[in-house]
C-alpha cells in the first residue's frame, strides 16, 4: 500500500469509509449490506492492523452506521476485537457511535457492539 489514507465512497449498499493516518481516525457512515463484505472490509482491517503496528499513536473509531447485514456485523466485531486487544496492550483507543435520535433501536444495537469493549465507547443520539 502506497497511500496512508483510505477513502471508500458510499454506495446504496455500502458505507462511506475514511481512514486517516495523520489524524488516527477511522470513520464509517451509511448502510452496509455488501454482496462481498470481505472485499469491502479487508482493506479496513488491514489498515487498522498496520496503524496499530506501526503508528504507535491513539486510534479513534467513528461510526454513523444504520443498517448492517450479518457479515458486516462480523467484520465490525473483528475490528472492535482488534481495538480491544490494542487497548489492553496500552494503545489509546476510543470509539463513538452516532445515531439518529428518532431511531432508538440503532442506539440499542450500538450497545450490543459495545458490550465486550473496555475502551471508551460513546453512543450519542443526534437530534
Amino acid at each position: 500500500m502506497t497511500t496512508d489514507n483510505l477513502n471508500i465512497s458510499e454506495t446504496s449498499s455500502t458505507p462511506a469509509i475514511q481512514a486517516n493516518w495523520e489524524d488516527g481516525t477511522v470513520h464509517m457512515q451509511g448502510d452496509s449490506y455488501p454482496e462481498n463484505s470481505f472485499e469491502l472490509f479487508q482493506p479496513v482491517i488491514d489498515w487498522v492492523e498496520r496503524f496499530l503496528r506501526e503508528a504507535k499513536r491513539p486510534l479513534r473509531l467513528e461510526l454513523d452506521l444504520l443498517y448492517l447485514n450479518t457479515s458486516s456485523i462480523r467484520a465490525l466485531m473483528d475490528i472492535l476485537d482488534m481495538l480491544e486487544e490494542a487497548h489492553t496492550r496500552g494503545t489509546g483507543i476510543s470509539a463513538v457511535w452516532r445515531y439518529d435520535a428518532a431511531n432508538e433501536r440503532v442506539g440499542q444495537l450500538a450497545e450490543e457492539f459495545k458490550e465486550d469493549c473496555t475502551f471508551p465507547f460513546e453512543i450519542t443520539a443526534r437530534t
Binding site: N69, I73, M77, R105, E112, D116
Partner: peptide, 17 residues
C-alpha cells in the same frame, strides 16, 4: 460466543427492518 452475538445482533436488525 462471537457467533451467538452476531446472530443476536443480526436478528435485532431484522426486527428493526
Amino acid at each position: 460466543r462471537q457467533i451467538e452475538k452476531i446472530v443476536r445482533i443480526s436478528d435485532r436488525y431484522q426486527t428493526m427492518l
